[in-house]
Nucleic acid binder design. Structure first.
Lengths: 340, 340
DNA sequence: ACTTGGCACTCGGTTCGCGGGAGTGCCAGT
DNA sequence: ACTGGCACTCCCGCGAACCGAGTGCCAAGT
């Protein structure tokens, strides 16, 4: 009972602080929420919440501000994901429907998400897992350099440079290509590995090393590096996160310039619809301790192929942000599911 | 004579202001530069410079600050491009030499430039002009959708989606591909247009429309869209441009998110070594009126294939910035010239 | 014709002191 | 367990005063 009210107070504090960006006091709280008790009672609750580490007071006589832990409790126990308004849903539809290829889908989605949340949005390219190989091309760039291009049937194209220890003639290159194409055309990417595993052995002597290098890179491309691209939008919104945030802009921009950081940030949910929220210092990424990151997996049906999400100030509107992130993820998933 | 000293005063003002970020007064000027005259004389000169619109005073009794026009005169008549230090040159070498492919060269270069100048760096991908076609692949994605992939011998890969008005069978697709590959393999990209111009006419009836669509897209890819990609680095430096710049961060970030804007920004110098400097309001791009943009073409020898440059506050160190931009452009040009 | 020292003046920035007000913690009473 | 009252803290805003940098102008000097 008492415990319930305390949580209600926490919720009220978070909501007011998110709305006003100012420390909230006991009086303002009873005025703006129907808590049914006096400011004095609220003060007692606030003292308790402060002891628990959920809120904190910037000065002796200012109001209270939620801590990272406070937001954590809020997100876990007090807030429901807020569905989008009709207008927002319609906006999503009209925004995404004109996309012409995968790049375009990604770009439109990430911009849309940035716009909806007024925060920084991230989207990871879908992995190749479900696709099949349409074609593989080997292009000699020099005696020991080969460009490998993999074209998947979903329109995605991957390219990698292969360095071989021994020179590769065009003739050999042609034969390797023929063999590989024979083996993997129309094969699902997940199955490519077993098809080409022993392909190097079909070659003799010095040719074997070259063939092996090509195969190794192919496997790497297919298996390991198939989700490394990330797209970003809405960095301009960083400038509007508020006065008190300006000092944190630089480290955030620095973090966002690193692909590796972005990938770590997006994490690896393996089920759709399960939103991940990392609040303030929960973020391992240095420089993002003043921000929260909301991510979710998206894909075809229940099959998660990649992640998307947003980065914003810890004092964001979690309910709306989570709603937007989830909604965009669903739309993108739907588009990927449609026959292209 | 008098005119000479006035320009010397302008130079001194620009240099001091760039160094201190504070309005500079007559007294400080004579102390820090050997002008050989008294502050009173300087004051007269300053009044004249103000009348000419080259400097301005923020308040009645603060020092003077250069105007955009003042920087213009400084850049055109008073400053020499500053060569890099030995350490910087060595840094460039070690930074760029490990690059493994075109993407990598671009990425390393743009990061390097951002680091050297502590500003925001831009680099445009080299155009395909000089390259030859290694391979062209057509992948059917649906009845009226074809993915066109063009692989150039310099390692660059371009992809485009083609929408056809009539359905295209795999059979037809195969034949179109064969014809195209026959025509353009090994051909320089600039010559592709004439080779395929009449290719559609080799097909009859409904097939002609499909073939024409593919050819049209191919031409577009080769001729028109061959320099649309731009890479960006150092946006975090925006946060360090200074107190007085914080208000301008948002519009700048917004501008930098638009590919089209970036391309306009990079402009189109057609000779290497001719640096372009656009100062403050000289920039047509809205939102960049508080910044200056320094760009230069780079390429193989005298042949400009693309541009690179930086965006920084109008009160940047033009001499050093121009030196860094030019130096990086030369290095990148050299790398492109080396046999890959 | 320039240059210079002197001088009065302007005005932004800083410091200081002083309420006002919001907010708290605690206590005694219900 | 809640509430009203009360003393206390301390941030914030405001005006006054002051300092100092800088200017413009003028009369004198070269």
């Amino acid at each position: 009972m008492v415990e319930d009210r305390r949580l209600a107070v926490l919720r009220a504090i978070v909501e007011d602080y998110v709305a006003t960006h100012e420390p909230v006091g006991s009086r303002a709280l009873v005025e703006r929420h129907s808590l049914g008790v006096s400011p004095a009672t609220i003060r007692n609750d606030m003292a308790a919440l402060e002891d628990e580490g959920l809120i904190t007071a910037p000065h002796t006589s200012a109001g209270r501000v939620p801590t990272d832990q406070g937001y954590r409790v809020f997100v876990d126990r007090l807030s429901a994901v807020k569905p989008l308004s009709g207008a927002e849903k319609r906006a999503i539809g009209s925004f995404l429907d004109g996309a012409v290829d995968l790049d375009d889908v990604m770009q439109r989605s990430v911009r849309l998400l940035a716009q909806l949340t007024r925060q920084v949005a991230l989207i990871q390219y879908p992995s190749l897992t479900r696709s099949t190989v349409r074609h593989i091309e080997l292009v000699g760039l020099g005696p020991t350099r080969i460009l490998l291009v993999l074209i998947a049937d979903n329109g995605r194209v991957e390219q990698r440079i292969v360095e071989t220890s021994v020179p590769v003639s065009d003739d050999l290159l042609g034969r390797v290509r023929t063999r590989i194409v024979e083996q993997v055309s129309g094969v699902r990417l997940v199955d490519v590995a077993e098809r080409v595993a022993h392909l190097g052995e079909q070659f003799e002597g010095p040719e074997r090393a070259a063939a092996a290098a090509v195969v190794a890179t192919l496997l790497e491309t297919v298996v390991e590096r198939h989700e490394e691209r990330v797209m970003l939008a809405g960095t301009a919104n960083l400038a509007s996160f508020g006065e008190d945030f300006t000092g944190a802009v630089r480290p955030v921009l620095e973090a966002l310039e690193e692909q590796m950081v972005l990938l770590r940030l997006l994490g690896e949910s393996r089920t759709t619809d399960a939103l991940t929220v990392r609040i303030g210092h929960e973020n391992e990424v240095e420089g993002l301790s003043a921000t929260s990151v909301v991510t979710v997996g998206y894909g075809r049906g229940d099959d998660v192929v990649a992640q998307l999400g947003v980065v914003g100030p810890t004092r964001m509107d979690y309910a709306s942000t989570m709603g937007s992130v989830r909604a965009v993820a669903r739309y993108v998933g739907r588009i990927l599911t449609e026959p292209q």
